[in-house]
């Protein structure tokens, strides 16, 4: 055990752990390329990316929530509800109007989450569990548990069709979201404040940051992203279904965590999330091409996730990294202790 600890104190190893997302991404992509012939062809690549875009958009929203040390389980329900709105309102509002309404539904659901977590002070795990159950039931209630179809199947094709031989619209939106999130988190004051709130909410509040507003904003952002993802998913398939996205929350959380964002908050990045989404996309593409049963895919994904969080723990326990700023701040467990 001692010698194992020593290994993790070597700077090179720590650097490797720090950039583990890149490492694991390169590894999975190399594996994918060797298994799937023609993956490097642009068309295949574009298709794989298109399929990952929905997950990616949800993951972008979750990145901010997780950065703040919160959790959002309701993204899948929001995705389904927005999609249903975007399809069901087409006769009344027209296709573009309904799509906008769907995005608005996502935004409103995010506001609901923000209200529960910030105003009512409910723990985000339970609060978003409640809204997850509520919104999912709303989807079933509105549709009588049956999928609904839009009036023009050709309208939504633009979302998933490659634009001018390049990527599809939703891939572009996903990549744009990643870039904007990266720029915001890295180069703006409010971006840096987000990290501060995530590391230690009380300390951030004490330094004059309105922590509550950041948390509220994060849930609204997450709702908005899930809304956009849901609208595009429903347009692409011309279907609004109450069961859409029922497992996407856990997969998206996995993608964000594989990307190096910590559930305890205060650490993570937009590019990491991009890496996490690409890793999962590469695994899916490869295993599907090899027609490996989906449960083996679960075993692989779960194991990668487990190894990464374990490495993260070992790395942050080593004395060398104890010098980093984040480890000097109190942990969540200490912070949560009841008032004296």
């Amino acid at each position: 055990m001692k010698s194992l600890r020593k290994v993790f104190e070597v700077p090179a190893v720590l650097t490797l752990i720090h950039y583990r997302v890149v490492l694991i991404l390169v590894a999975t992509v190399l594996l994918s390329v060797s298994f799937v012939p023609g993956l490097t062809e642009f068309r295949t690549l574009s298709l794989s990316l298109d399929r990952a875009a929905t997950l990616g958009l949800v993951a972008v929203g979750l990145t901010v929530v997780l950065l703040l040390g919160k959790l959002d389980l309701s993204v899948g329900s929001i995705l389904a509800l927005s999609g249903i709105a975007a399809i069901a309102l087409q006769p009344q509002l027209g296709q573009f109007g309904a799509a906008a309404a769907g995005v608005l539904v996502g935004l409103l659901a995010g506001i609901l989450n923000g209200f529960l977590v910030v105003v009512l002070q409910i723990n985000s795990l339970v609060a978003t569990l409640a809204s997850m159950i509520f919104l999912r039931a709303l989807c079933h209630f509105l549709t009588d548990s049956n999928p609904i179809s839009g009036n023009d199947p050709l309208f939504g094709l633009a979302v998933s069709r490659a634009l001018g031989g390049s990527f599809s619209l939703r891939t572009f939106i996903f990549l744009l979201a990643i870039i904007l999130l990266f720029l915001w988190l890295t180069y703006t004051v409010s971006g840096r404040h987000t990290y501060a709130v995530g590391s230690n909410e009380d300390a951030a509040t004490a330094s004059g940051i309105r922590s509550g507003a950041y948390v509220f904003g994060a849930f609204v952002f997450s709702g908005l992203m899930s809304g956009i993802a849901g609208v595009m998913q429903s347009l692409a398939t011309n279907t609004g279904s109450p069961v859409f996205g029922s497992t996407i929350a856990l997969t998206a959380i996995a993608a964000v965590v594989i990307g190096g964002t910590r559930l305890e908050g205060g650490r993570g990045s937009a590019l990491g999330t991009l890496g996490g989404v690409l890793v999962l996309a590469a695994i899916t593409t490869t295993l599907e091409y090899e027609s490996v049963a989906s449960y083996y895919q679960n075993i692989v994904t779960g194991t990668i996730l487990l190894i990464l969080i374990l490495l993260d723990r070992i790395a942050s326990d080593s004395p060398r990294s104890a010098l980093s700023l984040s480890s000097l701040l109190p942990t969540r467990a200490q912070k949560r202790s009841p008032a004296p």
Binding site: A130, S131, I133, F134, L135, A137, F141
Partner: peptide, 12 residues
């Protein structure tokens, strides 16, 4: 499927 409307509110 629709009972979640009540359950979700109850939890919150």
């Amino acid at each position: 499927e629709s009972q979640g409307l009540v359950m979700g509110s109850l939890i919150a």
